[in-house]
């Protein structure tokens, strides 16, 4: 028996003014599955990811986390209404998010960044949160940076702390928005190593990435987007070796011929 999908996206649309950036996305992600979303810039990958936890409000369609609609609730005749803020916050806390530019809170130490949501959203005691931060810092290999402020950390270290922070609420799904795109090349490896470790632990992961090596090694499935649509969906072996769609073939040719 296959596990039920934990994330379901149905006919999702997004307009920014006149720009139609998501044109009816359908997507299902099963618990424990690792899905990489790839595609040229402007294809709507990041917008789709941000719609999953309602950082971006979709214009039409629905996102379900474990059968709970996120942000907008659809009634019987298909009309959408906004969910209560409290419900939206509760659902968001069940998804961890990692950003391209890390977005660590600059006025807090690494440990304080990790402890913030568990204490103020999860209601954890300071002591329990401290214990949790310690464990997570160990997981990402930065126990010695507990008291460092983000400005004192390298990009790779900041992103590993950001991953630890996103894990602090024990999320059911982790969302990664181009987690290595802002990093110097020599720092990409340490972040991907933490992500691979996470994948081995069985975490459900949705990763927007340009990193073919990571996608090939870790993904169960590649979702290829272009012009706001899902163009091709396939396991990495099929996606990289026998792509079917013309636009996928062009995209792969472009990124694999990139000089290093």
């Amino acid at each position: 028996m296959t596990p039920p999908p934990i994330i379901r996206v149905r006919n999702l649309h997004k307009w920014f003014g006149d720009a139609h950036v998501l044109k009816g996305i359908d997507l299902e992600v099963k618990a424990g599955e690792k899905v990489c979303i790839m595609g040229p810039s402007g294809s709507g990958k990041s917008t789709l990811l941000r719609c999953l936890n309602f950082l971006e409000e979709s214009s039409k369609g629905i996102v379900l986390l474990d059968d709970h609609p996120v942000g907008y609730i659809e009634d019987a005749d298909g009309k959408r209404r906004r969910d209560s803020e409290a419900n939206i916050n509760r659902l968001r806390a069940r998804m961890g998010m990692v950003f391209q530019s890390f977005n660590l809170w600059t006025h807090m130490t690494a440990a304080a960044n990790i402890m913030e949501a568990p204490i103020h959203v999860g209601g954890l005691s300071r002591q329990a949160a401290d214990e949790k931060a310690r464990k997570l810092l160990k997981l990402v290999g930065l126990e010695d940076k507990k008291d460092a402020y983000p400005a004192r950390l390298s990009g790779g270290q900041q992103q590993r702390i950001a991953i630890a922070r996103a894990l602090a609420m024990d999320p059911e799904v982790m969302l990664f928005d181009e987690p290595t795109s802002a990093l110097d090349p020599e720092l990409v490896g340490e972040v991907l190593a933490v992500m691979s470790e996470l994948a081995r632990g069985g975490m459900t992961m949705i990763v927007v990435t340009h990193d073919m090596g990571f996608a090939r090694a870790v993904a169960d499935r590649i979702v290829f987007m272009d012009h706001g649509q899902v163009v091709e969906e396939a396991p990495p072996s099929v996606f990289f070796e026998q792509p079917k769609n013309e636009r996928t073939i062009q995209f792969l040719a472009k990124i694999s011929s990139r000089p290093f």
Partner: peptide
């Protein structure tokens, strides 16, 4: 991004 990170963590 500072606000995004907070909202994504479930902060009101």
């Amino acid at each position: 991004g500072q606000v995004d990170a907070a909202r994504a963590a479930g902060m009101s």
